[in-house]
Write a protein that binds this DNA or RNA. Structure first.
Lengths: 251, 251
DNA sequence: TGTCAAAAATTGGCCTGACCACTTGACCAC
DNA sequence: GTGGTCAAGTGGTCAGGCCAATTTTTGACA
């Protein structure tokens, strides 16, 4: 039973939490104005400086916006997202993955442990199982790649790989990759073996050589193939992509 | 000419920034106690509630810990990193930068605009100016590298570069790189020209060729040199690094 | 001389009341 | 319709006060 220091709860935190709950509960809608500091201080029976402290915490947390002379306004979550940029388009993401995950694979090639290999094999088997059932391999796919990020034994590299997958998780389109491949085969005489399982097997085999160059090449070949799938699906109008999703602009 | 809303700068933010800079600059060591609220209010010629607001912001940011009745203490970045388990060590960061920023430079080499080049030159001049005054080039350095991230015209790559710099910003040690170089020269007959300005100039010249390989090589040479500085400083006990900061473990 | 409890001093936490800067809406002149 | 002025309301900051928590000092005692 670990003993931890007792940290008395600051009053401003109580106020901030209550206001946060009221906002989350819909009492104060996004874009609306909160009651004035003076009114809140009276309603909550605390001093105005305490309200101000709570407001600062909420503004830092992104929940509100304080406008001098006007009032305090609830931030619109959609507005926050729009301001924060919706993230990279699919082709941007693929390009970045080719470069960054290629490097991660190269680093990992010399640092994989037996545990890493076991985990990769497990993820691959999961992909095989799901593919046989015509189910999305998305989760197992992600696991496979994040194992590689961790296998670099470099938390900055792992974080970079994780971030790429976080971007990817925002686009539901990726979960349909398997279906897309099936659709493409209906339209074109596709020679390449598009099996994700084959690609991932090749990556594992490259790791078995311990050669960073081979690992990088296997990873990049895999990711370029996925990018090609995306390009072909776009050309066949199997998926709708917005402007940002177009291949990265060349000056 | 886009018109943007003017956001007046809150006094508590000025105070928080100044204290943050003092902490980063080593004026207040990790674990040490800041002057009392009353003393700070008098020293900075602001009211005590304003100091309190600044303290709240700094505590939320993780820079300090407020202990009722005792005082306000600077959090140990290593302790913070250990608690949050989110911070790569310096060598991890450098390794990741060599790989990721090398790739970013290669991509950017074919996509730089004239505006990008102008911005890079400007950042370089700022570095020159600061270096002449023996001042930290940290901000201009960061700007230089983030311009390159944006010059990839790939927001996933830019985000990856930004994340590396966010990690870097958590370690005040980097602001003292210039001093470290000076110290190293007192201890060793160092043959390499350690001028950051020279390295960055070489990167710009590599970009002028438009050759991705050359750009990658110039960026990686620069970052490897920085990593060497770090290694040497560590060997000379000029900086104290915790276990995680050691060169990436090899299995 | 060392230990321990109590007192004093210091520090953060919160409050009250005041004044100033900024914003908004109403109203008026041109 | 536009610009200017004014009043009311809002946030921003200040000064001073008192209380709770912590640390330091002091005095008593073995």
């Amino acid at each position: 039973m670990p003993v931890e220091p007792i940290k008395p709860r600051r009053l401003y935190q109580e106020v901030a939490d209550q206001l946060s709950r009221l906002i989350a509960g819909g009492e104060f809608k996004p874009g609306s104005r909160l009651p004035s500091e003076r009114d809140l201080a009276q309603s909550l029976q605390v001093s105005r400086p305490t309200i101000r402290e709570a407001m600062i915490a909420l503004e830092i947390a992104g929940a509100i916006e304080i406008r001098t002379g006007s009032g305090v306004f609830v931030r619109d979550p959609a507005q926050s997202a729009a301001e924060a940029d919706i993230g990279p388009g699919p082709f941007e993401l693929m390009e970045a993955r080719i470069h960054i995950e290629g490097e991660a694979a190269a680093i990992a090639a010399e640092r994989l442990t037996d545990l890493d290999r076991t985990a990769l094999e497990k993820a691959l088997h999961e992909m095989e199982r799901l593919a046989e059932r015509q189910q999305s391999i998305e989760e197992a796919d992600r696991e496979f790649h994040q194992i590689i990020g961790r296998a670099t034994r470099n938390s900055a590299m792992a974080a970079a790989v994780d971030q790429l997958w976080a971007f990817r998780a925002r686009m539901p389109m990726w979960g349909k990759l398997h279906e897309l491949i099936g659709e493409i085969k209906k339209h074109r005489d596709w020679n390449d073996d598009l099996s994700a399982v084959t690609d991932h097997r090749a990556i594992i085999e490259a790791f078995d050589t311990g050669d960073p160059q081979k690992a990088r090449a296997a990873m990049q070949a895999h990711l370029r193939r996925v990018s090609d799938v995306l390009m072909t699906a776009s050309e066949l109008d199997l998926i709708q992509l917005n402007d940002k999703a177009a291949p990265a602009a060349r000056e």
